[in-house]
């Protein structure tokens, strides 16, 4: 006959199995902190080196190519960092990062991310540089909101914050870069620090 403790363990096992099979739990706080740092560095370079500061919807800039390449660089670097730390996290738990939950997470994030990406390309081609920052924040926020269903729920909250910042930045379009710094820089660092202390220590 099993003991009381065994039944509680049974329930704990059921709970952990259900969570592990439906949620991707290998995201790391460090990835968030570093992504925020890259964003701050990228924004600082584009502002101080290239003097990029879109303050109206139609905004043209002499060194647009460099700024776009810089933005892509920040994005790719953040992505590589996220994959690296997730992999490290998963390995330490004896799991793999390419599993049914991570596939579901990526497939669901892909829709808002690709929609936003295409929209931004169209905006750039029409010269509407000033609207690219709000679009980045809003569509990134939407993808995080969806991702929150497949990983820890705090991601959902971060998504809502990014969406609000994105909408606010359409209203105060002259402060676009400032909103970008808050959304991609500051809040990633806050979120990453929170994650690190909440889940990794």
């Amino acid at each position: 006959m099993k003991e009381h403790q065994d039944y509680i363990k049974d329930i704990a096992e059921i709970r952990s199995m259900m969570e592990r099979s439906s949620k991707f739990l290998s995201l790391s706080g460090w990835a968030g902190i570093l992504a925020g740092a890259y964003a701050l560095a990228g924004a600082w370079i584009s502002y101080s080196v290239y003097e990029f500061n879109p303050n109206e919807p139609f905004y043209s800039h002499g060194q647009l190519h460099q700024v776009i390449l810089l933005a892509i660089g920040v994005f790719v670097l953040a992505l590589i960092t996220a994959i690296y730390f997730s992999k490290r996290n998963a390995n330490s738990k004896g799991e793999t990062i390419w599993n049914s939950t991570s596939q579901r997470l990526i497939a669901n994030m892909a829709v808002p991310v690709l929609t936003g990406g295409i929209l931004i390309l169209i905006l750039i081609s029409k010269g509407l540089m000033g609207l690219t920052i709000p679009s980045m924040l809003i569509f990134y926020g939407l993808s995080l909101f969806v991702a929150g269903n497949f990983t820890i729920k705090e991601v959902k909250l971060l998504g809502i914050i990014e969406i609000i910042l994105g909408l606010a930045s359409v209203f105060f379009i002259e402060y676009g870069l400032f909103f970008w710094v808050i959304g991609f820089g500051v809040f990633h660092i806050i979120y990453g620090t929170y994650m690190h202390f909440r889940y990794e220590r």
Partner: peptide, 20 residues
């Protein structure tokens, strides 16, 4: 118990997913 738990919330899973 674990097999039943994961199949309770996933429509279907293959052998390797269950093993992982």
């Amino acid at each position: 118990l674990g097999i039943m738990s994961v199949l309770a919330i996933n429509d279907s899973l293959d052998f390797s997913a269950l093993k992982d």
